[in-house]
Design a protein around this nucleic acid. Structure first.
Length: 429
RNA sequence: GCGAGCGUGGCCAAGUGGUUAAGGCAGAGGUUUGUGGUACCUCCAUGCGUGGGUUCAAGUCCCAUCGUUCGCCCCA
C-alpha cells in the first residue's frame, strides 16, 4: 500500500487492546510493591559493548538479533534486547550496592530484537522484569520464582508449567562441557546441522534441540547434575525443597539451557500450553557473575523476565474484554439544549462521574442507540423543551424509568445517584 | 537467515479467467422534528496490498516486492 505503515514486527496498541495492558500493569505494580520491589527505568538504548560483554558475544541475541547503529558522534549504540544488562549497568553506575544489603528492582518497557515475526514474537516487544541483587541465598531464587508464579496466578492464567534446572558455577559447567563433548563427538555425523556447528562453540545448547535423532542421542548424555560441586548441589537442593514447602509445582529438566551467557546455578522457565511454538512466558535464573563482569563488585543476583505480549495473548483467551464503565450518556438536540448539555457534562465530571457527550446532533433515536451501546447507567436527555425549562430528562437505561427534574436539582442529588449507579453495577442477589 | 500458506470497503467475508465485484457487521440519512438492545427503505470499493507480465479478456494465471500467518533457528 502507498500509505505509511508501522515497521515490520512492531504494533500499535489500540484502545481496545490497552485495557489488557493496564490490567497487567496494575496487577504487577501491586504485587511487586507488596514484595518491597522498587521500579527502575533505564534508557532503551545503551552502548553496544554493554550487551556484548553482558549477554555474551557467542549468543544469538548478540550475534544476529541486535538493532545496532552509529549515532552522529560515531558511537555504536544498541536498542536494548533485554532488560537485565541495563539495570545492572545502572546499579553499578549509581553505586546502589553502596546502600547496603539487597536491592529489589523491577522494570517494564520495550525491548528490541531483529527476528522474523511469528505468533508471540515481535521485533519490538515488552517485558516485565525483576532483579534481586545482593543475595546468594537459595531463598532469593525461590522468592523470585514465587513472584513470577503469583503474578501469573493473580491474572488467572492456567496450564502453566515451571521447568527448573541448575547449570552450576563456571567450574561445574566447564567440567560438564568436556564430558558432554566427549559423549557427543562419536555421534557427530548423526546430529542435526545446527547441533553439529554448536558442538565446539556451545555444546550445552544441543541438549534442547528439537531434532528427533539429536534428542534420542541427548537422552543418554551425561547430565549436568552429576557434575555439580558440593555447594552447587546444595543450593539446587535447597531451591527445590523451598519450592515444595511453598506448594509450587515444578518439573526438573536437565536439558533446560538458557540462551544468555550470564546464567549460573538456577535456571527456570514458565511455559504455557495455550501458546504456539513460542510458549515461554517467563524465563530467568541466577547470574552471580554479571555484576563483577561489568565492572561492579562481586554481587550475586537472580531475576526473570516475562513477555507482555505472550502474557496478554493468554489473558485474552480467558478474560472477555471489559466494557468501559460509564455513568452518564448525554443526548441533546437543538442549539440551546446542546450547549446546556455541554455545561452539564462538565459539571458532572467535576463531581467525579464519568460522562460521554453525544456530539452528533443527529436524530434522537440515533443518539439513544449510541447511548445504549455506550453501556452508560443513565441517559440524560435535553431537547428544546428541557432547555427552555432548565430541566433534564433522567432515564435509567436498565429499567427504562425516566423522570424530568430541574438541572440544579440533578446536581444536588449526587450522592443518591452515585449509590444507585453502584447498586446497579453490583446487584445484590 | 530458511521453509510453507494468505492479502477483496472501517471490520468479517463470497468470488476458482468472461459482461455493472454477493452478503453480514459497523457508519450516514429516512419511515418517526423527541426515546435504545428489535423492523423496513435508501446510501456507503471505477476497484480486489503494490509494481510489472501473460491473455481478446485477470480479484481470479505468472514474476517481483511489501505486509501478515504458521513453522525452523532463537528467545520473553
Amino acid at each position: 500500500m502507498g500509505i505509511i505503515q508501522a515497521i515490520r514486527g512492531t504494533r500499535d496498541l489500540l484502545p481496545e487492546d490497552i485495557v489488557y495492558w493496564q490490567k497487567v500493569e496494575s496487577v504487577t505494580r501491586k504485587l511487586l510493591t507488596q514484595a518491597a520491589y522498587q521500579e527502575i527505568r533505564t534508557p532503551i538504548f545503551e552502548g553496544t559493548d554493554l550487551f556484548e560483554r553482558g549477554i555474551g558475544e557467542n549468543t544469538d541475541v548478540v550475534g544476529k538479533e541486535m538493532y545496532t547503529f552509529l549515532d552522529r558522534g560515531d558511537r555504536s549504540l544498541t536498542l536494548r534486547p533485554e532488560g537485565t544488562a541495563g539495570v545492572v549497568r545502572s546499579y553499578i553506575e549509581h553505586k546502589l550496592h553502596g546502600q547496603g544489603g539487597v536491592q529489589r528492582l523491577w522494570y517494564t518497557g520495550p525491548m528490541f530484537r531483529y527476528e522474523r515475526p511469528q505468533a508471540g514474537r515481535q521485533r519490538q516487544f515488552h517485558q516485565i522484569g525483576v532483579e534481586l541483587l545482593g543475595s546468594a541465598s537459595a531463598r532469593a531464587d525461590v522468592e523470585v520464582i514465587a513472584l513470577a508464579n503469583d503474578l501469573l496466578g493473580n491474572l488467572g492464567l492456567k496450564n502453566l508449567t515451571l521447568s527448573l534446572n541448575s547449570v552450576g558455577n563456571g567450574e561445574d559447567r566447564q567440567n560438564y562441557r568436556e564430558a558432554l563433548v566427549n559423549y557427543l563427538s562419536p555421534y557427530q555425523q548423526e546430529l542435526d546441522k545446527d547441533s553439529q556447528e554448536r558442538l565446539q562453540r556451545n555444546p550445552l545448547r544441543i541438549l534442547d534441540s528439537k531434532d528427533q535423532r539429536t534428542q534420542e542421542i541427548a537422552q543418554n548424555a551425561p547430565q549436568i547434575w552429576q557434575y555439580l560441586g558440593e555447594n552447587s548441589r546444595k543450593h539446587f537442593d535447597t531451591v527445590q525443597q523451598l519450592l515444595t514447602e511453598l506448594g509450587i509445582a515444578y518439573q526438573l529438566n536437565h536439558c533446560l539451557v538458557r540462551g544468555l551467557d550470564y546464567y549460573s546455578h538456577t535456571a527456570f522457565e514458565i511455559q504455557s500450553s495455550d501458546l504456539g511454538a513460542q510458549a515461554t512466558v517467563c524465563g530467568g535464573g541466577r547470574y552471580d557473575g554479571l555484576v563483577s563482569q561489568l565492572g561492579g563488585p562481586e554481587t550475586p543476583a537472580v531475576g526473570w523476565a516475562i513477555g507482555m505480549e505472550r502474557l496478554i495473548l493468554l489473558l485474552q483467551q480467558i478474560q472477555p474484554k471489559p466494557l468501559p464503565e460509564l455513568d452518564f450518556y448525554l443526548v441533546s438536540r437543538g442549539e440551546k439544549a446542546e450547549s446546556q448539555a455541554l455545561i452539564l457534562a462538565h459539571k458532572l465530571r467535576k463531581l467525579d462521574f464519568s460522562v460521554e457527550l453525544d456530539l452528533s446532533g443527529s436524530a434522537f433515536n440515533k443518539q439513544f442507540k449510541r447511548a445504549d451501546r455506550s453501556g452508560a447507567a443513565i441517559c440524560l436527555v435535553l431537547g428544546d423543551e428541557e432547555a427552555h425549562k432548565q430541566t433534564v430528562n433522567l432515564k435509567w437505561m436498565g429499567t427504562k424509568e425516566q423522570q424530568a427534574i430541574a438541572q440544579t436539582e440533578l446536581l444536588g442529588m449526587v450522592e443518591q445517584l452515585r449509590q444507585q449507579i453502584e447498586a446497579q453495577k453490583n446487584p445484590v442477589i
